[in-house]
Simulated assay, not measured.
Amino acid sequence: MTKKKMPYEFDYYVLLFFGLAFIGWLWEVLLYLCTEHAFINRGVYRGPYLPIYGAGGLALCFLLRGFRKKPVRVFFLSMALCSGLEYFTSWFLEQLWGIRWWDYSGHALNLNGRICLLGAVIFGLGGTALVCLLLPLYGKLYGRISRKWRHTLCLLFLLVFIADVTYCAVRPNMGEGISSHTLSRKVTK
């Protein structure tokens, strides 16, 4: 049995993860800046990244790259995959810390306030842009950066991220405007 070789080195995926996590953070910060007229770091962590966007983007990269020439299929699969990830992440964060970082209860066609049709369509569009347009461009940019710089960037990003995750495991970012509401937790003695 032969192993299927990954098309790129590990650093390709690490840099892609952080790039997409930053783009997701930027998207949400700008969205709240325009709608709420306030700068709000919407993530669980302190840094300028939302790992759910990085994880979702990597999942789309691995699962949908072969459909690059079929954007309609990529759109619907992106809607489904990203909505599933968003639902699970919402549930997990609520179980872990008793807080919801987002609530779509006021949006049409929502499921338990965790996902909604509008969000799914936006994920579909973003996933299609990622798979059909951005991944080929990213591949070219990746090839232009020297291996030494790629490895240095990966190490730097990973060290900062690990420190942030460690700190936020005890003190997650729950500041003003972060979540829709805090849920009460039952404490048993």
Rank of each mutant, 00 (worst) to 15 (best):
V170S: 15
V14Q: 00
R114Y: 07
C168D: 13
Y13K: 06
T128S: 02
V121R: 01
Y53P: 00
D103I: 07
R68N: 08
L30A: 13
G54A: 14
L135M: 04
C61F: 14
L159N: 07
E86R: 03
I122T: 07
I52A: 01
R100E: 14
E36M: 12
C168R: 01
Y142L: 07
G126V: 02
S184R: 14
A59V: 13
I115C: 04
K140D: 07
A21Q: 03
F157C: 15
S83W: 00
E28R: 10
C116R: 01
N112C: 12
R65D: 01
W91K: 12
P172R: 08
F76D: 05
I52N: 00
G56H: 02
F62K: 08
M6P: 06
L15V: 04
A38V: 10
G113F: 07
A55H: 08
Y87P: 04
G84H: 12
G98Q: 09
C168E: 09
P71Q: 06
V165G: 06
E86K: 05
L133C: 11
G43F: 00
R171Q: 12
W91T: 09
T182C: 06
G175P: 00
L153V: 04
F22H: 10
G127A: 05
Y13H: 07
A55S: 13
V72C: 07
S90L: 07
P136H: 02
G127P: 02
S146T: 15
Y138R: 06
T35M: 11
R65S: 11
R185T: 10
Q95C: 10
F18W: 09
V131Y: 03
